[in-house]
């Protein structure tokens, strides 16, 4: 590079000027932030004024400010929301300070009041998982313990994040509580449709009875859809899934969810059922379902048949006649999306 020089282009100059202009704004913001911090840290000021200041005070970087912010965070006489803001404003320190990380875990576990402080602590700990994996690793056990403690917290948001993290970790305590939540209506930790998703991070066979129950007697349609989708490996659900797929009275979204589940255990059956729906059932109200089924066939049909070459492919609809029927469907009245998907399907044969 030494034999050359570079001259800033107009583009770069313009970007730098924009940066400069923004820097001026940032400088003003920082000046405002200094004032905001003074107000926020002044415990004699009215709460509303301090909360308003919190919105623009940003990070605390001066040692004296940090000390005061930590004192506020630890002061049980300070309002919960103020303590929550105080901790968020020193979040970066948690990434390198073992004691503060433990403070964050303790604050999460304590779950004081409405859970605001615990939520702030949890956010900081989530960032630490990304940026300080080595430190977080040393605190894994106490972090999980704190998460388990707050799964019963009245703050739903806090409960939900804690449950999801634990479910991802295949935590048996959280899995048991989620299952109980599904089984005991009225004592739900979290909505059933969300609980099913969390359990699906690590599906176990003992979940199937309750999932079947939800699929057949659902508290709501989303829960039914999620239950159906996660019964793909349950052999006992095969008939129910097929029944759902082939039931013309069923909600199209449920039918597609059932097809995708069926692919897992009976791919040939799922492919054949999909093809039958596409060519045998009529009505514009089915265009979206047909589009989705064709879309799924594009990515799964070859696999469904090639995975089991030793089996005679259950084929009540031959490939040739199916393609001919698609050509007919393409020139019939119907949605543009369906016709486009027919082209994509046929092109991929």
């Amino acid at each position: 590079m030494s034999e050359y020089t570079y001259q800033d282009s107009e583009y770069k100059k313009r970007l730098r000027n924009e940066v400069l202009e923004k820097s001026i704004t940032v400088a003003e913001q920082k000046k405002q932030a200094v004032n905001a911090r003074k107000i926020f840290l002044n415990t004699t000021k009215p709460i509303d004024e301090r909360l308003e200041a919190a919105k623009s005070m940003g990070n605390f970087t001066e040692p004296a400010d940090i000390k005061k912010a930590l004192a506020i965070f630890r002061d049980e006489n300070q309002p919960e929301i103020i303590r929550s803001y105080a901790f968020s404003s020193v979040a970066g320190l948690v990434l390198s300070d073992e004691a503060l990380m433990q403070d964050a875990i303790d604050a999460l576990k304590a779950g004081e009041g409405e859970g605001q402080i615990a939520l702030s602590a949890l956010r900081i700990l989530q960032l630490a998982e990304i940026s300080s994996p080595d430190m977080m690793e040393r605190h894994t056990a106490s972090f999980k313990d704190a998460l388990r403690t707050v799964v019963d917290h009245k703050n739903k948001n806090l409960r939900s994040i804690a449950l999801e993290i634990l479910a991802m970790e295949k935590d048996e305590f959280a899995q048991r509580r989620l299952l109980e939540s599904l089984e005991n209506k009225g004592e739900e930790l979290i909505e059933p449709e969300v609980a099913i998703q969390f359990l699906a991070y690590d599906l176990h066979a003992n979940y199937y009875p309750v999932l079947r129950q939800i699929a057949q007697n659902p508290p709501n349609q989303i829960a039914k859809r999620e239950a159906l989708r996660n019964l793909g490996t349950d052999v006992e659900s095969k008939d129910m899934l097929l029944e759902t797929v082939m039931n013309p009275e069923e909600d199209p979204e449920m039918r597609h969810a059932a097809v995708t589940a069926l692919i897992t255990q009976a791919p040939e059956l799922a492919v054949d059922s999909s093809k039958r729906i596409i060519i045998e059932e009529n009505g514009e109200h089915l265009d979206e379902l047909k589009t989705a089924l064709l879309n799924t066939l594009v990515y799964t049909e070859k696999r469904a048949t090639s995975d089991r070459p030793e089996n005679l492919f259950l084929e009540t609809v031959s490939a040739e006649s199916f393609n001919q029927e698609l050509q007919r469907l393409k020139v019939s009245p119907g949605s543009a999306e369906l016709k486009e998907m027919i082209d994509i399907y046929l092109n991929n044969r």
Binding site: M168, K170, E193, Q197, A200, Y201, D202, L203, I222, E226, R229, N230, G232, T233, H256, A257, T260, A261, I263, T264, E288, L289, T291, A292, N295, T296, V298, Y299, T300, E337, E340, M341, I344
Partner: peptide, 26 residues
Amino acid sequence: VVQFNASNPLINWQTNLSGTDVVILG
């Protein structure tokens, strides 16, 4: 749960979470 149009290829997305042996479609 992320929702897609019927023609979006991602309607078939598999999350294949780490350690999950079972592949769940949809």
